[in-house]
Design a protein around this nucleic acid. Sequence first.
DNA 1: CGCTCATATTGAAACGATTTAACGGCGGCG
DNA 2: CGCCGCCGTTAAATCGTTTCAATATGAGCG
Lengths: 335, 335
Amino acid sequence: MPQAQVRDVARLAGVSPGTVSNALNHPEKVSPSTRERILSAIAELGFVPNDAARQLRRGTNASIGMIVLDIANPFFTAVAGGVEAKLAEVGRPLVLANSGQDHAREIAYLDLFAEQRLSGVLVTPAGQVLDRLRRLRDRGTAIVVVDRKTGASEFSSVSVDDDLGGRLATQHLLDVGRRRIAFVGGPASLSQISHRIGAARRTVEEFGAGEIVHLDGPTLDVEAGRIGARRLLELPAAERPDAIFAANDLIALGALQALIMAGVRVPDDVAIVGYDDIEFAAAAAIPLTSVRQPAVAMGGAATTRLLDVIADPTGSTVEHIVLEPELVVRQSSSG
Amino acid sequence: MPQAQVRDVARLAGVSPGTVSNALNHPEKVSPSTRERILSAIAELGFVPNDAARQLRRGTNASIGMIVLDIANPFFTAVAGGVEAKLAEVGRPLVLANSGQDHAREIAYLDLFAEQRLSGVLVTPAGQVLDRLRRLRDRGTAIVVVDRKTGASEFSSVSVDDDLGGRLATQHLLDVGRRRIAFVGGPASLSQISHRIGAARRTVEEFGAGEIVHLDGPTLDVEAGRIGARRLLELPAAERPDAIFAANDLIALGALQALIMAGVRVPDDVAIVGYDDIEFAAAAAIPLTSVRQPAVAMGGAATTRLLDVIADPTGSTVEHIVLEPELVVRQSSSG
DNA sequence: CGCTCATATTGAAACGATTTAACGGCGGCG
DNA sequence: CGCCGCCGTTAAATCGTTTCAATATGAGCG
């Protein structure tokens, strides 16, 4: 079956290819009657414009790309939901990619996006990608960093105040009488993690009592939480923490599961505070205290910012939007 | 900043554009020394090939598209994970789109994929899209339906036996002495739903006792579960079901939450069985009995099938792969 | 009735890569 | 020593759409 193209549509409608293109892209330049005729020719032939040809000629791609750290984490799907909703308003498609915290895959997707000449990219970097981001930007792709402030701060970003979040969680644990707090989750090379830990350490210091132990790990999923909890259980009772501050809710849920299985009472023996407040935190075996991040709002704000950058490419306006997290206290820490 | 193109690379390396292209796409046709020279020219200029031009000339797009029903549902992200892993092996990029069970968005994405001439599409249809799928296939895009058998069965599919799943769940509830079973979740127009309900009805019939009540709803998320549970609580005590068979785990978790909040004892007053066995089912307030679907395996199988169809376009081989679900009994139904 | 001006349409160039047929140089073989 | 064939390279054609300058058409005005 031959694929119909503009030329065929033009012939059937008795006009030139240029007019067909105009009918589709600049309807006001075409008289209603010819437009009508062209549209029915298109329907009859089942013509579908070739996006590659259009893009090549136009020089731009309307799509927006997004690279998330972990598609299995409800927090990121919530962010993506916020992005998608905003993009739907302006009729731009979203291309979603999952780096899985793997630097190589992140690089591969960034390179793909570069080849595709996307008009904008939202990214939560997993590794060192400043050079690629610069190259992308230099080629005309708008970039907004999500859930992180880049070191060089040369790109606009939307993030949630990780220092505040770390402080809220730690202060709360101190308030309910905990003194040995294990921070579970990593890697510390992720700036979110280092900020949350840093804030936790500072809070303990200011408080004048207590300590933070970091149980690092390579990933941020449920399994990492189970592993972290087991490592914690191996410690001699005297050294065992009386609280866990988890890097995110997946880890908190995994740790919770492992602790319960081991007969540890939560929150009596070990209190737990998670991070993100995903939908499942409230429904956990022991409802999880968590630092709520405005995920959907973050996605929306990042998208708005990105569209602004696209609209005004000259704009050297770099903007860092920082949203505020909020502590939601539930049973896992209120003992 | 001017974007370097093959012509520039060619000039710098002292060869013709054709040779640059060969160096990139058919390295064996180019002598090692020139290839070396070309690669360093590419690096020096920061040349990034324009995918649109390449595609236009080649006539195909290596990317695979996937449309999921609900990106916020861990079940679908697990499926997507399986797909991504398989695609990574063959170096094809995945374009992930979320229909959100919205027919209009589903259509929009299918149209976009058609314009992009993707080589393959994995789709879990939300609405009536047979005509679009046919058009896509006729234009040379391979199609595999995921988590569903299409009515016309003209497309290959990978699904999980919903009849068996419905039977397993219902039989289990009957076995633990329940007789009034509420099926919560909809819409019934989704074939998964109708199969699971149908099997439930048949199981009750064969058993010779009990009944199924369907509490329909437009979506399959946590909120729908809460709403379903509330509707159930409004029934006079005599009519109130003693078990819930939820269309998926999100609904089960929402219902569980609402029931607990209302002081209903689970499983004593109302037993609950979910569907999917997502990662969070086991970590719920009352660990959830659920019909486990092999999500990752389904994604992998669908991808393998899709790649086969792409490799053999003439192949009129339509194949329907049906995987088996498995009941995982936990506390929410073992009373 | 002729001229101007706006509007609708046309034809051809252009986007940037890949491909293909043709070509030149070189070594091997007779 | 000359011809053949092979290898690496080149020049030009090509993919399918959009754009742009040029043209045709028709209306309005003096």
